[in-house]
């Protein structure tokens, strides 16, 4: 199947006879990276599944107002990041949890998730990542797992490249320390 560029998909959506078809192509193109980005933040597959569906519903509702000069993938990542972080915030509020207990709870989700099959080393690395503050975790995941350029990350997170580099470096050091002392 032909892979369309973002520009082609957007003009198919706004100018074509079948916006549903164009949107379906957008979903097919981005569902996997968006899913993994959210999954690494909220850990549980079921929660991720709900959030990803919400992300694309929001994208559908806002796509006609989307500025064509911005990149589609950074916009989708931005929605996904906001949805995942607000899910974690709601969880924290619902159970009145401090930050440490949220990461503990996410670790428990990791252990309990039937769709997680990591070995001991992988679990240790995951726990180290979960011990990071949420926003630092987002930065680490985007750079390390999504292999994203700092410039794109800056557009998603609305932060400077310098601040992102500093944040990523801190995150890597903390993870290294966690792994070494575990």
């Amino acid at each position: 199947m032909k892979e369309y560029s973002d520009e082609e998909l957007l003009s198919m959506f706004s100018g074509g006879d079948n916006p549903n078809y164009a949107f379906n192509l957008i979903v097919k193109k981005y569902q996997e990276p968006i899913y993994w980005h959210v999954r690494r933040l909220v850990i549980s597959h079921d929660d991720t599944n709900d959030i990803v569906q919400d992300v694309f519903v929001k994208a559908w509702q806002g796509l006609d107002k989307f500025r064509k000069d911005a990149a589609l993938f950074t916009w989708l990542y931005r929605i996904a990041t906001n949805e995942a972080l607000s899910f974690l915030k709601k969880k924290k509020r619902r159970y009145l949890l401090p930050l440490v207990d949220v990461s503990k709870q996410l670790e428990e989700s990791l252990e309990a998730d039937v769709y997680y099959e990591g070995g001991e080393m992988e679990k240790t690395v995951q726990k180290a990542i979960l011990s990071l503050p949420e926003k630092q975790r987002v930065v680490f995941n985007l750079r390390y797992h999504d292999e994203m350029k700092y410039e794109d990350m800056a557009r998603i997170l609305d932060t400077s490249v310098g601040a992102l580099k500093a944040s990523y470096h801190h995150a890597v050091k903390k993870i290294q320390k966690y792994i070494s002392t575990d």
Partner: peptide
């Protein structure tokens, strides 16, 4: 940065149900 982490690309053990991504766009 003195990290012993593997280079990126490892899926870290996360899995999805079978054929999940084939059905996800339909659910959306």
């Amino acid at each position: 940065l003195g990290s012993s982490l593997d280079p990126p690309g490892n899926d870290q053990g996360f899995r999805v149900p079978e054929a999940y991504f084939d059905q996800l766009h339909g659910s959306i």
